[in-house]
Design a protein around this nucleic acid. Structure first.
Lengths: 212, 212
DNA sequence: TAGATTGTTAATCGATTAACAATC
DNA sequence: TAGATTGTTAATCGATTAACAATC
């Protein structure tokens, strides 16, 4: 499927947007769309859309455009939406619990199989059928279960240590919510969600208004 | 403070990272740092650091480097960390409640002054001294309070309508957690946190491993 | 077939990196 | 002063946009 030339992260990060717009188009009942029309909806150039898609294959047809349903399926496939990932959450605080309840999660193939914390008060509490477990028993859990992804919703100061541990235990990916740039010496894919960074950028945008 | 030439969003999005690294350096007790040393810690080039900082001013000193504390203060100032923003949360579901409890929030000048939902079961419930209120009374709230920022943690289908409403009521910024690209015909700054996009990018990284 | 729209190459633009004179 | 390191200009690199031949 992939032809060797490496695809830039800028392109990858646009794929979920295409996925969303195509999903909406399917719901609207449309069958085909041209790069031009899609570009107008999305506020990007038609050229960029064609370039992006052609990183992965020639999904369109000259004179016609793109079949929405099949393009959607192609992008879903590229993103691995049809794949299943066994996922655990470490840190059952507010954010951890919010994510555990997050609907889109399972819909996108992320199967929650465990929640861990160090607070004994939380042990045994259920979130969506998943019992919160003692973090100190996580090694045992890894021995008995295949875990693909660890979601880290833990305080800053524990992040490095816990990321290191799950990496050694064999996770393939980490979704990190701590305001820390993880660098692991392992072959683990990391995706950061730096909420405080995002908030500060909003603060900047507001502070600097009128000066631009 | 700003000298007219416009600063790219790429630079702005790096500022919170500088802020974090400088904060850590202060805690470590260091007094000065060169762009070279900081570049090694952050994994970017010294050249980029100097270019970035010089968008805002000459904060360093030849032969010496940068005074950590004063550089930190400059960046804090650029980001508007010292400013106060009156903030409300709309949508008191899991994510809304998690954000309401979010510590960094107040620390960065975002003062939570209201939480709204449509579910009567939630009315009156307190999160950190803030009572959850009826969304249908939000216009009254705006009449009595200055609101700078609205945080939207609401289902996809209501996002457009509610964003439009708070924009008309006069918010200056929106922190949007819905998987939707808001386009408002008002002078409102928008910062999106597309969690499902981020998750899908992680899915891509895992699916495509070995093919790159 | 004629019109439309892609896939793809070429041109442009912007961002990153390198180099070095200025200067602490 | 000599050494170090900035601020800034120039070179490079990569990403976006434009153009157009291929083709449905």
């Amino acid at each position: 499927m992939y032809n060797g030339k490496k695809i830039s992260l800028a392109v990858i990060r646009r794929l979920p947007r295409y996925y969303r717009y195509l999903s909406d188009l399917i719901i609207s009942g449309a069958k085909r769309i041209s790069s031009k029309e899609l570009s107008e909806r999305m506020g990007i150039t038609a050229s960029q859309i064609r370039q992006d898609l052609n990183c992965f294959g020639g999904f369109g047809q000259q004179g016609y455009g793109y079949n929405i349903e099949s393009l959607f399926a192609e992008i879903a496939n590229i993103l691995g939406v049809n794949k299943k990932f066994n996922t655990i959450i470490i840190g059952a605080g507010n954010m951890g619990q919010a994510l555990a309840n997050y609907e889109n999660f399972v819909k996108r193939g992320f199967n929650l199989s465990g929640i861990f914390d160090v607070d004994p008060e939380l042990f045994g509490k259920r979130i969506k059928d998943i019992v919160i477990m003692d973090y100190n028993k996580i090694e045992e859990f890894f021995r008995l279960n295949q875990v693909d992804i660890a979601i880290l919703t833990i305080p800053y100061e524990y992040t490095r240590e816990i990321a290191d541990k799950v990496a050694r235990l064999g996770v393939r990916g980490i979704w990190n919510f701590s305001p820390m740039d993880l660098k692991l010496p392992y072959d683990v894919e990391i995706e950061n969600v730096h909420l405080s960074d995002s908030l500060m950028v909003l603060g900047y945008k507001l502070s600097s208004r009128g000066n631009r």
